[in-house]
Write a protein that binds this DNA or RNA. Structure first.
Lengths: 213, 213
DNA sequence: AAGGGATTGTTAAAAAAATCACATAGGCGT
DNA sequence: ACGCCTATGTGATTTTTTTAACAATCCCTT
């Protein structure tokens, strides 16, 4: 059993993908799926899938495959997303507002319970029943609200400051949507969402990548 | 010289990161930078950077480092983002609207010149001076507008249909913001932007990943 | 209850990517 | 003009990740 080994970062990334595809398959009525079929749907190698899943346990049944619902539950458990996560959003710009309106967050178990901005004109405004609070008060408020994850949607030049407030608040995970790197202590997990990385990738592939992949 | 070899996918990803960090450094007044310092700012290995850059040419000066502005220009050229790319956006929801308002797209050379949706109530509406057109007319309009890249911001269940229209329109690159996989022919490059992959990553790291990284 | 068929879990091999180490070469001071 | 200093570019090495192959095992039919 592989369970106790070090789990590759790439595996974690793929598990999130598997959940997405499995939920689609479930909606379509599938109850059981083989690694081969799931692989096709995810556009990866079947061995890859079996290996990824084996890190967390033997979820499959030999000769049969994986029970879809059971697998979804197991992966979510393994990832730690089988519960509600309370998040704070910092930066009420276009993107911030769009994310706040995005029903998918709640549906997936990420509840935005605090909204912060440093613009005095935005402070006090209500969005989806939550009042926008001054970013400076983040450290004090975050504990109160039980926030564990921070979402940064500020302009790039203010991303680091937002991060500092979140770190000061004792938050352990940050998803940064601003196109800027941020410094954080070892124990804080920072993930970057950057559209432009993807756009650049596409542009490159169109331009010269014809032969690749 | 490595130039003619196959370029790793991971390298392309990092080049986009380098551009981001270099532009910040430029704003801060840096004119020259060593691979070591750039590495620190990007949180990667210095050799990695030198090797990545060497795939595209000898941009550096031995004993000195890399000239920041020159390097930015060179990388952008290598990636094919040293020009304007015309894009179409399909799906005028919260996220779509936020992206349309996002100034960064234009600043980085991605001009959204067509907006499409299948909702009759949205068709005809004007956003930023561009009229929303029925998705069905995408194939005919895309050529007319000179669109090369498609951005999908529909709900997940409509992502494939949006993709089909884009493919029919002869588009060669798609950035899909909808949480759904899409099928596309070999010659069409598809990139996925999925916040939840990142959120899941953070959740996992907080839950059990303490020992990792 | 026993054997056949199918698909997993896992070990071994291959491929890819990251890192190291150093020779190479440009700039700058003398 | 010469040599030193420094940081690049690149071949060799290590590590990581992916893919292939197959033995183990579970269900299902007879």
């Amino acid at each position: 059993m592989l369970r106790s080994e070090h789990i590759p970062r790439a595996t974690i990334k793929r598990l999130a993908l598997y959940v997405q595809v499995l939920e689609t398959l479930k909606r379509e009525g599938a109850e059981v799926i083989s690694s081969e079929l799931l692989a096709k749907a995810c556009d990866v190698n079947p061995s890859q899938i079996r290996k990824d899943l084996a890190y967390f346990g033997g979820f499959g049944v030999r000769g049969v495959g994986y029970y879809v619902q059971e697998l979804i539950t197991s992966i979510k458990q393994s990832l730690g997303v089988d519960r509600i996560w309370r998040a704070a959003l910092v930066g009420v710009g276009n993107l911030g507002k769009a994310l706040l309106r995005h029903q998918e967050f709640r549906r997936r178990g990420f509840h935005i319970v605090g909204i912060f901005d440093c613009d005095p004109f935005k402070i006090g405004e209500e969005i989806g029943g939550i009042e926008v609070i001054c970013s400076k008060r983040l450290p004090e408020k975050a504990g109160e609200l039980g926030v564990e994850i921070g979402l940064i949607t500020t302009p790039p030049e203010r991303a680091q400051r937002a991060a500092n407030y979140l770190i000061e608040a004792g938050i352990k995970g940050i998803v940064n949507f601003a196109p800027a790197r941020i410094a954080a202590p070892e124990h804080v997990c920072v993930e970057y969402v950057d559209f432009f990385h993807h756009l650049y990738n596409v542009a490159f592939n169109i331009t010269l990548g014809q032969s690749q992949r």
